[in-house]
Amino acid sequence: MTEKGSVHPEARALASELYAKHSQEILAFFRHTRRMTMADAGDLMQQTFAELLKTLRNNPQLKVEYPRALLFKIAHRQFGAYIEHKGRHGDRMVDEEIDEQRSLAESDDLQFQASLRADQKLLLRAMRRLTKEDGEQADRARERGDVTESWTISEHQLILYLRFWVGLTLARVAEILDIPPGTLSGRQRRALQLLRHRVAELEAPDEATRGTSTTMLERWHGILERDALEVLPAEPKP
């Protein structure tokens, strides 16, 4: 997959520049979204940039106005493929994932979490609980004690991560997710609401972290309120 000796030096230069600038946050994005080995995250990150190179080569006229949005869009796609791959191989794969691999993922993930502050860590865990099925049904499942961290990634999780963790604007995130900004606005509201539940669940046994994470959530809500005032017209079209 190397691009050595590429005939598109501009594309290569741009990709290289973007790699220098953004590979760290793309890598972090994969590691954040779900538990995986560092090598898997590295692969996904590498594929993202390989895909970027391809896109740039194939569209020499492409003006990259929002490189981060573009990168996250590709990353999102890569992640989708990865999930699909896992999904296609279905439960079999999850079950048969050899212990070593699983424990490696676990330990890499723990290491990643160790680099986070306590409040960030809590939010990360809460966000990973925002599964696709999240809603009343999932709440009831949880009440039955049927709780697992999802192997997939929900749109809610993605929205929250890109909006508040990475700090992208509503317009950029809408672009990445291919949904109209108005729709996104509603979904992120819902996502925050759900997140609040998940945080409460996690916080219940650990009073100590309550202050920080709740404050963080309040802040995100604050951003949301501000967004609601400025709403969409203010967002320039990409």
């Binding site: 190397t2 000796g5 560092m38 680099s115």
Partner: peptide, 29 residues
Amino acid sequence: EPFGVPPEDLAARRLRADRAKALFGENGP
């Protein structure tokens, strides 16, 4: 400030360096 990227440890940096070599060769980032 947004949370942004958490501080990166040296292992992650090394991984990025390795993958950069794979992508861009010796003269890459």
